[in-house]
Structures are given as structure tokens and as C-alpha cells.
Design a binder for these strands. Structure first.
Lengths: 208, 208
DNA sequence: AACGAGGGTGAGCAAGCGCTTAGGGTCGCC
DNA sequence: GGCGACCCTAAGCGCTTGCTCACCCTCGTT
């Protein structure tokens, strides 16, 4: 059920669900290129070159450059939503679930910040139907976080005057990690996740 | 000293400092186009067309398309920094100054979200020297916010375990407003500014 | 009336784009 | 060992891109 396959060792293999191997190599190359230069500034020749293939090889596995972006975006959004739902459906108080959601969501946006950058910031490059499909997934992410906050308010754990606005702010804060996070930087994904979980608990007025 | 000229009536005229008028029309057209489609997806023909001119007219006023982006980015960053500094240098407690900074900074990112989107998200499209110049302005924005938080901690107003990390988070939160804010949406720039000022005060543990 | 300067245009160049097509090498399978 | 299925490539088509260039129109000045 997971969006990422696992090795016998047990760790995640990103893009493990993309087969055959040549198609996966192209997709990984596209993620890197899109993250570095943006979708429109990336050429199909560049993608194919990074995957060690000729420009024409791309079109054996994908109909268009936009289909590549869509596949990346779809898989990434599925994974992000899965992470949020796992936290929301976990046990514990609303504060614990919210902290858990933010921690794992932020960690993903930091660790996979190349993927996340494409997923979160290249939405407008998708065609209309593909964009609509992705927008729907985002709505579900929003609803998942909002539900946790709602429950925290109902339980008296949180003090939140504006649930809808706070939900947008929380998600926006987490997503933007993929823009500024740098692997060379001082903080690890775990540290950023912990910091952000703390900040978000403060935003919702959870008592420590 | 203001980055925006004023009419006799007193209200801001954005891009008022750009002359002559034809150059300003082109720049405004470029801001709209870049915000809608992104820098790389925008053609010089599109920019000139929006300004009611032929493609060649653009090159009378700007050497390259990149110079247009740089002018936009430079003016926008100057304005953003000016807003932050005005709040930081204003009177009152650290909490009042921080709330003021967030409120006006967010309001600008919401009101001028087309400009802000270009300014904040098209940094990578700049050439190396131009990018370096803009990165330096961002460092100054960061330092300005950090100073307010530092002072609040020193005065015992705030409780912030990680000042550097919290500064990044606060700026990131504000900047990302330009990505999701929609003029058609339910909230006014003022409302978002007020909400975010409240959220940020909670993040730094300011007592109400 | 002549003129020079500066802001504008129509046409188009060289390069690069997304994508297609004809064909070739390498398999497993009978 | 013959053969079709599957990947992949070299070459290139039609189009768009950023940008240029030769020319022109509209001024204020003399």
C-alpha cells in the first residue's frame, strides 16, 4: 500500500514503483533537472542526457515532457498525503498527532527537497486536467490537517481563533521548507522537523 | 527615500520610480507575465504585446529579458527590506515591533502578490552577479527580523530556544503568502496580516 | 523649411525547442 | 537459426525563442 517500495533491508527506495528501470532513470533525472532549473527551463535533451540516453528515448516511456511532470507530481502528492494521514490516524492526543504530522511532513520536505520543490512549485506547468487532479489531492491534505486542529479545539487542547487560516499557515510553513532547505546547511531534516513541530504547537496554543 | 512615488492624493504609485513611461509599461507587463507563467515560460513577445508595443521595442529600454527581471527583483527587495526596517526601527516593545513587521510585510506580499511572487520565486533565473546582489538583500532582511527577536529575548518578552531557526520560519511563512494568496479569495490582505502577526507572536512565546 | 535626435517598427537571423520517424541491435522463444 | 518484440538511436522537421538591424515617424529647435 506504500507509495515507495522497500528493499529486503527495509529502507525506502524512492520511485521504486516506477518501472521499467529505464523509465525510472528518466524520471529521477527529470526530478533533478526540474528542481535545479524549473520545468520550463529544462529541456528534454537535458533529461535524457542525465539518464544516459538519447533525446528520443524519453518518448518511448513518456508521451510528453508534461506527462513526466505529472507522474512526478502525482507520486509526490500521494506520498505527502499518505504521510499526513498516517499521523492523523495515529494514536494519542491531538497535540501529539499534530506534532507528528508536522515532524514527518517537514522531514520529507527537507530530505526529498528536490522532489518536493518540483511537486510544490511546478503546479502551474501542468495541463488543466492534470492540475485539477493534483489540486484535489491538496484539498485532501488541507482537510487532514484541519481535522486534527478541529479535534484539538473540540478537546480543549488548542486555542485557535481561526482554524481555516491557521491550517493554511501550518501547511504553507511546512511546504516552504523545500524552497530554502539545503543539504549543505547546518540543520538536518530531523532537527528542522523537531523545530517546526514545536513552533506549530505554539501556533495552536497547545499547553506544553 | 521611499521606493514608491506618491501622487498629490498621497497613495502609493507602484513602480513610480521607473521612467520613462514606456519603460514602466514594459516593466509592469513583465511583472504580470512573470507572475502568471514564470520567467522562463514568458516570451519577450508576450511582454511587449501586453505593453502595446512591438517585440523590438523592449530592447530599446532593456538590454535583455534578464535585465527586466533584475530590475523588478531589485526594486521589490528594496521595498520589502524598507518595510521590515521601518517596523524594526519603530517604537514600542519587541512584541509590538515584531507584530508590526509581520503585519506590514504580509500585507505587502498579499496586496502585491504578483510582484512578490516574481521577487521571491524567480531568484534562480537571475544571472550569477545579479543573484548575489539580491541574496545580500535577503540576508539583510533576515538580520532585521532576527534583531527584533533577539531584543525580545533579551528583554524577557519572548521565549525562543532557537532564534536563527525561528527567524527563518517567520520569514518563510510570510513570503509564502505570495504563493497562495488570491485576490478572489475570502481574506483581505489586512486580515491575513493580522492573523499572521498573532501566529508569529505565539511562535516566539510572547505573553498576550 | 530643414534638421537631428530619440523612440518606435517589420522583417528576419541563428539557435534551440519539443517531438517524430526510419531503422538497427539484442534478446527470448519456437 | 529464424523471427518477432522490445528498446534505443541518428537525423531532422516545423516552430518558437531571444535578440538585431535597417529604416521611419514625430518632435522641438533653429
Amino acid at each position: 500500500m506504500s507509495a515507495a517500495e522497500e528493499t529486503p533491508g527495509g529502507e525506502d527506495v524512492p520511485w521504486g514503483e516506477v518501472t521499467p528501470e529505464a523509465a525510472r532513470r528518466l524520471l529521477v533525472a527529470a526530478v533533478e533537472a526540474f528542481a535545479e532549473r524549473g520545468y520550463h527551463a529544462t529541456t528534454t535533451r537535458d533529461i535524457a542526457g542525465r539518464a544516459g540516453m538519447s533525446p528520443a528515448a524519453l518518448y518511448i516511456h513518456y508521451k510528453t515532457k508534461e506527462e513526466l511532470l505529472h507522474r512526478i507530481s502525482r507520486i509526490g502528492h500521494d506520498r505527502a498525503l499518505e504521510i499526513l494521514r498516517a499521523a492523523a490516524d495515529g494514536g494519542g492526543t491531538a497535540a501529539e498527532r499534530l506534532a507528528d504530522a508536522v515532524r514527518s511532513f517537514v522531514r520529507w520536505h527537507a530530505e526529498r527537497h528536490t522532489t518536493a520543490r518540483v511537486v510544490q512549485y511546478e503546479l502551474d506547468a501542468l495541463g488543466p486536467e492534470h492540475r485539477a487532479e493534483i489540486v484535489e489531492l491538496r484539498r485532501e491534505s488541507d482537510a487532514t490537517v484541519r481535522r486534527i486542529i478541529d479535534e484539538g479545539v473540540a478537546a480543549g487542547e488548542f486555542d485557535v481563533p481561526d482554524v481555516a487560516g491557521t491550517t493554511v499557515a501550518v501547511l504553507s510553513l511546512c511546504i516552504d521548507v523545500s524552497r530554502w532547505f539545503n543539504t549543505q546547511g547546518r540543520r538536518t531534516p530531523d532537527e528542522v522537523g523537531a523545530l517546526y513541530a514545536d513552533l506549530v504547537l505554539r501556533m495552536v496554543g497547545a499547553q506544553k
